[in-house]
């Protein structure tokens, strides 16, 4: 898997046929680049971090400003979806066809906290007694329907899909070394010289 991501310059068919170079090439410089254990571990940690909390992978790699922007944007969309539809918009079950997976949940699960919300949703549902409530008592939660459900699912699933871009970027940075990015605004010439 790691080798495939780092291959960059040649086809998988060449590798299977034995005609590709043994070590992958850096797609920027063209030099042979051998993956060491530290690089692979860094890639794994950063990718896991990006899944656990969007933007955390970039922060771990030292791109703090970019990571904070990614984190705040994706979490705003994700939390916005939960505010619109409530926790019931995240559900791993497909109520229309229980044999098939809920495709929206596959997108939502690309952010790890969605799994926690799914558990909370099921806990709330399990705690519902099914009895008729007296008029002075409120429902523990209200399931979303119609536009609220539609937009809640859309926001949370879109946040997960946007996190795929972030995860792929983290993997690209760690495995290809393509990280020559400008994080801060360029300083004024006078300040640099002084």
């Amino acid at each position: 898997m790691v080798f495939l991501f780092s291959s960059g310059g040649y086809r998988l068919a060449d590798r299977l046929a034995g005609t590709a170079p043994v070590a992958p090439r850096n797609p920027i410089s063209g030099h042979l680049r051998i993956m060491d254990r530290k690089t692979i571990l860094t890639a794994c940690y950063a990718t896991l971090g990006a899944w656990l909390l969007p933007g955390l992978g970039h922060i771990l790699l030292g791109q703090v400003r970019r990571g904070v922007i990614l984190m705040s944007t994706i979490l705003a969309v994700w939390v916005g979806g939960l505010l619109i539809g409530g926790v019931t918009v995240i559900d791993h079950r497909n109520h229309d066809n229980p044999r098939r997976p809920n495709l929206a949940f596959l997108g939502q699960a690309l952010i790890a906290p969605s799994l926690v919300v799914n558990l909370v949703h099921h806990k709330l549902e399990a705690g519902a007694t099914g009895r008729i409530l007296p008029s002075n008592e409120r429902l523990r939660y209200v399931p979303a329907h119609g536009r609220s459900r539609e937009q809640g699912v859309l926001f949370t699933a879109l946040a997960g899909l946007l996190n795929v871009l972030v995860i792929i970027d983290v993997m690209t940075i760690t495995l290809t070394g393509h990280a020559h990015r400008i994080e801060e605004e360029p300083e004024a010439e006078g300040i640099v010289n002084s």
Partner: peptide
């Protein structure tokens, strides 16, 4: 928040 949906019919 998080327990009830917002009615969106007018401005979704």
């Amino acid at each position: 928040p998080f327990l009830e949906p917002i009615p969106l019919e007018g401005f979704w």
